[in-house]
Design a protein around this nucleic acid. Sequence first.
DNA 1: TCTGGGGTCCTAGGACCC
DNA 2: TCTGGGGTCCTAGGACCC
Length: 410
Amino acid sequence: MFAIVDCNSFYASCERIFRPDLINVPIVVLSNNDGCVIALTSEAKKHGIKRGAAYFEIKELVRLKNITVFSSNYALYHSISERIMAILAEYTTNIEVYSIDEAWLDMNGLSDRYALACQIRKSILDWVKMPVSIGIAPTKTLAKVANKIGKNKPSGVCELCPKEYTDYILSNFDIADIWGIGRQLSKKLNIHGIYTAKQLSEASDRWVRKLYNVGLERTVRELRGEPCIDFETAPTPKTIIVSRMFGKKLYNQSEIGEALAKYCGHAATKLRKNHLVAKNMTIFIQATEGYGKNGNNYSCRYNFDNGTDSTIFLSQMAHRMLEQIFRPTKKYLRAGIMLDQLTFKDQTQYNLFNIAETPKQDKLMAVIDKINNKFGNDKIGLLSAGINREWKMKQEHLSPGVKGRVKLYH
DNA sequence: TCTGGGGTCCTAGGACCC
DNA sequence: TCTGGGGTCCTAGGACCC
């Protein structure tokens, strides 16, 4: 038995925690660079705004309807998320943090699951002021269905049980809302006359597999109540990507270099947090115009002799790689780095003849992490990541940082 | 003028090997 | 005159998720 705990309009609700005056007021939260809407409250939805809408297109509506706008404030959202996960951990040790605003709970062997879910929901609301919905079912896919139903219930909780009730729900559930089925697949299934979750659950495994792939077959089995997707306690990342649009177009190699150095810092911090090292790095820059197979994207890939988690080493490599792909006549919109071939630091094989890592550098990185943990991200970093940071993204509606705010719960 | 960022899984197709 | 077949590994691209 699985339960999925999902925060309602998470980013918008986070902003509301510190602004009780915004209860029942429509709120939208914008993507990095204030580009488009990534989260919105039900009140904002009523004005016809959709997730993904371009901000410049709804600006007038926002003004007319008095909708409150926030730039996304990830430091705040991560901090709230950690508090919620800590509350969940008080109820069960078997918890899989699935995303910043969602977690799976293992409910096997628990008797009154519905009452427990109501209790969890109340704790999170009382202590963090975050509204959540909880779905309970024998498979992850069904739990997601239940969660969606729970969002429209006053209790916020839905358990798919008994079978007649599940059948009733699935008969009225649009396939486009099923976890794992996106726009393309639902269109494809509609052509074959499949519109509801119930119809999809009755399709034959072989037919479904032939129509698309094993992933869809798993979804179908899960809809029938057969668990195919396991509980994963601490998934380790396989790739780490850091990429951002710039606040304005850049044509200067040194500014792009600064941005890349900063992204290397973020990526390396994430490596160290997960006790990983990377053996491979790709950097990419996106120009405003271009041609060829990859259009306006230019990238460069490099394999290290030894896995690394050093900000210094990664930044130096990124700098050299940028020299190879940078074209001076172009203007650039975005840059990014990707790390892959990640392995655990204590299991990695080093090249005997080229030991790049030194204990000294490890110590330095540990100190940097400690300082940034205590005083907030980016308090200390490499000079190569720049000080003025004119390329920094636009965030005109940012709420104050989380450090120094009132404690939310004891 | 202006449309995010970070991930996973699966498949097809090419290169290469014997 | 006739020119195989099976396997692996890698990469790119498509679909999905939050």
